[in-house]
């Protein structure tokens, strides 16, 4: 069943269109920045965007920062909201289940497809952004840090002002990619659960987005500080902590933990609901 889901994922033109859009937006931003040489000042605009003029190899992280607030969650919510509800809507759900595909197995296959979609999307964004960045901005001239015991080359400047070696930069970018992918899996889990509740994939996607928007509003609200650490978007921006020197693990750890809990809880809820639901679509 997992293979079937992956085939469906790959053969759906819509999925590729969403990935292309997600990769296209950072490309567009990069072209504008490269042509005008006007990057937002540091600390303003999308994170790290100010840095890319001096080092294109930071652009994967900046590109993720560009798509993270709206584009990426929307794409993921739409995709995940379609998981079960889309099958129900097209009428294929009943045929799949009478094939028979066990309900838990179908859910599991959907989860794998979701994970593959999220990871592929995030990685593709990072890769195209890397290509864009090095092509349009060039990688930072390799310079040596003086004064330290070993002279090593510097690929980019961290948020703390110190240099990052190429290896460090790659590892940290991978860390940020993993963190963002896991954050998106949290969104996907919510949408997947809603997808088992309703037969409308749009409804499921909008429901998940509504949950995210609610969370983002509550995060900024001082009076809601008691539930702050439980909110799904609370630690979304913590991926930037990979680019501090040293890496600030506290929020990253918590972000991973919160997303793991969201994924676990909503998958369990999806399982509890879907496995005993009357399929009347």
């Amino acid at each position: 069943m997992i293979r079937v889901e992956l085939v469906k994922l790959a053969r759906r033109p819509r999925n590729w269109a969403s990935v292309a859009l997600l990769c296209g937006l950072p490309l567009l931003v990069a072209v504008f920045v490269a042509v005008t040489h006007l990057a937002p000042p540091p600390g303003q605009g999308p994170a790290l965007l100010s840095e890319v003029l001096s080092s294109g190899s930071l652009y994967p992280a900046a590109a993720l920062a560009i798509v993270l607030p709206v584009f990426l969650p929307v794409a993921v919510a739409v995709f995940a909201g379609d998981s079960i509800a889309g099958e129900a809507d097209s009428g294929m759900l009943r045929y799949l289940l009478t094939r028979p595909v066990g309900r838990t197995r179908l859910l599991w296959a959907k989860l794998v497809a979701l994970t593959v979609y999220v990871v592929t999307t995030v990685v593709l964004i990072a890769l195209t952004a890397y290509a864009t960045g090095t092509l349009l901005f060039g990688s930072q001239p390799v310079a040596a840090i003086r004064g330290s015991l070993t002279t090593s080359s510097v690929a980019a400047t961290s948020l703390s002002g110190s240099g990052l070696s190429p290896v460090q930069l790659i590892l940290r970018t991978l860390g940020a990619v993993a963190f963002i992918a896991v954050s998106m899996l949290g969104v996907a889990a919510i949408a997947l659960f809603l997808s088992t509740v309703t037969d409308s994939s749009l409804g499921a996607a909008l429901g998940a987005l509504a949950a995210l928007i609610t969370s983002e509003v509550l995060v900024t609200l001082n009076s809601a500080s008691a539930i702050n650490p439980y909110l799904p978007t609370r630690y979304w921006l913590a991926w930037i902590d990979f680019f501090r020197q040293p890496i600030l693990w506290r929020n990253i750890d918590r972000g991973f933990a919160v997303q793991a809990i969201y994924v676990g809880v909503f998958l369990a809820a999806a399982w509890a609901h879907f496995a005993t639901k009357d399929i009347t679509s």
Partner: peptide
């Protein structure tokens, strides 16, 4: 058991053969 419940369904963007192949691959 082979079944046809409340009308046929298929993935509209794929060919009939591809649809059958997916269904055949699904399940046991």
């Amino acid at each position: 058991v082979g079944s046809l419940i409340e009308g046929p369904s298929s993935y509209g963007h794929m060919s009939g053969r591809a649809n059958l192949a997916l269904l055949d691959a699904a399940g046991t």
